[in-house]
Nucleic acid binder design. Sequence first.
DNA 1: TCCTGTGAAATCTTTCACAGCT
DNA 2: AGCTGTGAAAGATTTCACAGGA
Lengths: 205, 205
Amino acid sequence: MRYQKIPNETIRRLPMYLRALAVYSENGSSYISSEELANDLGLNSPQIRKDLSYFGTFGKRGMGYEVDKLTEQIRVILKIDVTQKAVVIGAGRLGCALASYEGFGTYGFSIAAILDNSPKKIGKKVGKIKIESVSKLAFIKRKKIKLAIVAVPAQFAQEVTDKLIKAGITGILNMTVCNLKVPKRVTVRSIDIAMELGVLPYYMK
Amino acid sequence: MRYQKIPNETIRRLPMYLRALAVYSENGSSYISSEELANDLGLNSPQIRKDLSYFGTFGKRGMGYEVDKLTEQIRVILKIDVTQKAVVIGAGRLGCALASYEGFGTYGFSIAAILDNSPKKIGKKVGKIKIESVSKLAFIKRKKIKLAIVAVPAQFAQEVTDKLIKAGITGILNMTVCNLKVPKRVTVRSIDIAMELGVLPYYMK
DNA sequence: TCCTGTGAAATCTTTCACAGCT
DNA sequence: AGCTGTGAAAGATTTCACAGGA
């Protein structure tokens, strides 16, 4: 394996592989071929093999990939082999939905708290997660939390983000419609749900 | 302008442009240059010009693009120039959050109902939107709704999807972790929020 | 025989540089 | 002068085809 630049698209697919692998593991399969994996995910098999080949040789010819081993290897690649703590900012409907979303577990994330600025909400709980004051940024520093999910109204998004970065956050999942300005050392990924819906009609019929 | 295949990535960006244009319109700007637009969205200007050029010549040299006119033109391209009705399936935390999300308005979507199968929830309201029985698929047919946002627990996602398609849905925004199997005539886009979070640690530091 | 790993080709997307309109 | 529209080049990603190990 020569050195090659790893495509961003490859990285984007790795969590998909993890998700599928979790299902195989539950079902007790110990090996999985790139063909089966591709079928289940709606991809094609050379793509999966190529994706994995950027990081090493994980499969056995004639057999496929060992489910549990590959799971662990992908976790290491993605740096989620240890549980990562994250905070949700904004205890609105979306923030609460995210905080209680079990899917994060699959990737080894745990939601440490929800922060909000409404005195009415502070102190309440969403599932097992407590709503704390957003002014408690010391909380983030103390717990060495590096990840934040921003789900506040758009007009406060940049302001909140600036504060988060001061508190030591270096990775942000932005659920608002803002284009957040952050220093280079901070990584942002944005999801605009309406935008995804926005392209559907174009492709329909 | 010769015919050229329109990149999917171009389509994906059009809603972003709409979002930014809505802000300019509110601020009373009547013209916007590709340079400004690019700055605000974190893109570069030739990309924006190229994207738009696939569909025609919308700008005025020396001036830029007329905000309201370009807005309308992009809406037409995306086929969202008339309000599109959508239903949300699943009245859990995420489903309710989505149903009450104002962002859909920007792209001309309106949420016609939330469907759920829990008798406890049916009849209640989320904001102004009523929760209906998921068995009421006639509702979708009668109102000629083509778009559905699926936010049910993963194990029911495929089953619900099959029913939706029978009721005439041809575009699905899939918020579950399932890879939905649908006939070719149906378009699906999937968002797995945890997956987006899953790639952040890789890029951090 | 089955299925991986991987260069090389094909395809898709972005960037560049500049002609040309206002 | 300023900013668009666009062919052509560069770059990124996917697909292909097949060599080779289990």
